[in-house]
């Protein structure tokens, strides 16, 4: 409960970008492995010195749920995904496991996504999965934020847990990254706010009952106590946009992919926490 004391100190203060963040010195160990929940900000971030995982801002009880895989409710969905991985589907009569020996072969992938492929397109994990389903299995696409997709993306992400987020932002990725950055700082909706207004200018502050984090995505997909399911990155972006009364971009569309790249680059140096637990 260290953070309660800090809140009273910060109470009423205007946005103080470098203010002490509650719970900054608490440590996240998952299954005995120490995670990096705060680290020097990557060089491209002009207004921030230090970056923090969303875990830091959650209450003790919520934090504890992520420290042990038996307590972490996300594993109900990860276990289901393990079954899905071996399930034959589609006209080719194949399962993921027919071609990928085990989910472990995807170790490291999550830490570097999204990335630009050899055709110059920005690609995300859900697209890679759907590519295999439609082109290699002869199966239907999964919905971007549907249960099957969120589960498999969680299972793939879990293989990189504890690895450092390290997305590439230069070279062929730079134009998409710039576009994502622009979206991050553009005010939208009737409440007329940008992502930065809340997650850069006001992290550490309470906004009514919510303790504002930096809006990092290193823990996605995330199990939320609020809706008791795995939540996808684009699903979360959508929710934040609707809250400020803005029309969200399309899940899986170019805008959200660019925004994902940019937001991911703001967590370069933190560890992949998939699957995290949030409220």
């Amino acid at each position: 409960m260290k953070f309660k004391k800090l809140i009273t100190v910060v109470l009423g203060a205007l946005a103080i970008p470098f203010a002490a963040v509650a719970g900054e010195d608490s440590q996240l160990t998952v299954e005995g492995q120490l995670m990096v929940t705060s680290v020097a900000a990557p060089a491209h971030m002009e207004n921030v010195d230090k970056i923090f995982s969303g875990w830091v801002f959650r209450k003790d009880e919520t934090q504890a749920l992520q420290m042990d895989d038996f307590d972490n409710p996300a594993f109900i969905f990860i276990d289901k995904a393990i079954d899905t991985f071996s399930k034959v589907e589609g006209t080719a009569g194949k399962a993921c496991v027919s071609c990928h020996e085990s989910p472990e072969v995807f170790k490291g992938l999550r830490a570097s996504m999204p990335r630009v492929n050899s055709s110059g397109e920005l690609e995300t994990i859900p697209e890679l999965v759907n590519g295999c389903r439609t082109e290699r299995m002869g199966a239907e696409k999964w919905k971007w934020s549907g249960g099957s997709m969120a589960g498999i993306v969680g299972l793939i992400g879990l293989q990189s847990r504890g690895m450092s987020v390290d997305v590439t932002i230069d070279g062929p990725a730079s134009s998409m990254w710039e576009k994502g950055k622009e979206l991050y700082y553009t005010r939208v909706g009737q409440l007329n706010m940008s992502c930065a207004n809340c997650h850069e200018d006001n992290y550490g502050n309470m906004i009514r009952a919510d303790h504002l984090s930096m809006g990092q995505i290193n823990g996605f997909p995330t199990y939320r106590l609020k809706n008791a399911k795995l939540n996808t990155i684009h699903g979360r972006f959508k929710g934040c946009m609707k809250n400020i009364r803005a029309t969200p971009y399309k899940e899986g569309g170019d805008e959200f992919k660019a925004l994902e790249l940019y937001v991911a680059s703001r967590s370069n140096g933190l560890t992949v926490e998939t699957p995290s637990v949030r409220n």
């Binding site: 553009t186 939208v188 909706g189 009737q190 007329n192 803005a246 029309t247």
Partner: peptide
């Protein structure tokens, strides 16, 4: 400021319908 404009109805981007 981050504070919304409470009696203002124009100049917004992508407002929900």
């Amino acid at each position: 400021t981050i504070m919304p404009s409470f009696y203002w109805d124009s100049g917004y981007e992508r407002t929900l319908k």
